[in-house]
Write a protein that binds this DNA or RNA. Structure first.
Lengths: 194, 194
DNA sequence: TGTACATCAGTGAACGCGCGTTCACTGATGTAC
DNA sequence: TGTACATCAGTGAACGCGCGTTCACTGATGTAC
């Protein structure tokens, strides 16, 4: 049954990746190791060959999810910038984050929005990871604010990121589709036209 | 052992109130009926004399928590308005919501921030309640925006409420106290000086 | 108004189930000579 | 290079425990006559 080092490493990455999606879709506490291992195509017994505890997996899965969202935002901003409109990068990144697609697919989305209230109660390592991810998002947005001093841009980006996370979270809570869309649309408008 | 109708009704309210605090502090999924009944000074067996299911209690506890936060915001706005500064009501309400006190005491705070990502996965009744609570918050803020048309005020309040919830949630996730404070401060500044 | 009986709030044990974690086992991989 | 042995990825059963829910029981409250 033993697998090669290379294969074992691939298995480990597969567990982290599929767990990152499961946690974002179902929540951290609500998702058991059984669910996670099954999602990775394994049985639960092998879990501790790869991780010390569920908490360690939570931290690594959060890290991977954050990295993916950061790449997604950078890519969107890059695409927006080439359109050479003023604030094109900002508008594209914000529009991507507050898209219907992002709202309806938490598995692939921002962990701060998908598991925010649970991250506030998570272990030290996970919160450290989440903090770093948040700061990365802030930097991406700050670099898209044109014509203002860097420290003003940073402060504005702090607030903008809070708006993004809050708007996406609430758009998922709300049971009225029109209201949900309006939250996303008005948040985009407000940020881009500020 | 039977209690009078009056006493039974008091017990029921006590369960809802203490559960509202427990859910906000520990999370919905992570808090068991045993914890909830013990927090109300009872044993777990009596739970189903008062509620059909845990989900029903979650809905009622969310409702009560929302109502408390709405009152808190209204009171703060009222106090701020008497100072007769321009935007005094807005500044007071926003300052209250984004206070260190609120951040450090989720038991008494806004359920959208304390359990936001779990509310997005909650039952229909709970989401309905959360939606109504959100709309109440929006209305309170909208009524404090002076000198703009009601529908513009409503749209702006939609975004402002998203910023409040996002900023508070993130201020609780972040493990750097300076950053946490900065998020709250910059969000207040940005909203009040807009 | 007093009495007999039904109701039901709350207790504590029990239900089946899934949790996070541990362990004996398997057999292919890696290592030492 | 070939052989013997140690390692360890993954399986499946089991650990103790707490979950949400049900139930028999208790005795005070409420109701009917």
């Amino acid at each position: 049954m033993r697998k090669s080092k290379e294969e074992a490493e691939k298995t480990r990455r597969r567990i982290v990746t599929s767990s990152a999606a499961e946690f974002r879709e179902r929540g951290i506490v609500a998702t058991g190791l059984n669910d996670l291992m099954r999602a990775a195509g394994l049985t639960h017994g092998g879990f501790y060959r790869h991780f010390d505890s569920k908490e360690q997996l939570v931290a690594e899965a959060t890290d991977e999810a954050q990295a993916a969202v950061i790449k997604r935002m950078k890519d969107a901003a890059g695409r927006g910038r080439t359109k050479s409109r003023s604030h094109g990068g900002l508008a594209a990144a914000v529009g991507e984050y507050l898209s219907i697609r992002h709202r309806d697919d938490p598995r692939d989305g921002c962990p701060l929005a998908a598991m925010g209230s649970e991250l506030a109660r998570a272990g030290a390592k996970t919160r450290e990871t989440a903090t770093a991810g948040f700061q990365n998002l802030v930097e991406i947005l700050a670099s898209e604010f044109q014509g203002i001093k860097p420290d003003r841009a940073k402060k504005r980006a702090l607030v903008t990121t809070a708006t993004l996370v809050g708007a996406l979270t609430i758009s998922r809570i709300v049971n009225d589709p029109t209201l949900s869309k309006a939250i996303l649309r008005e948040a985009v408008d407000s940020i881009v036209s500020a």
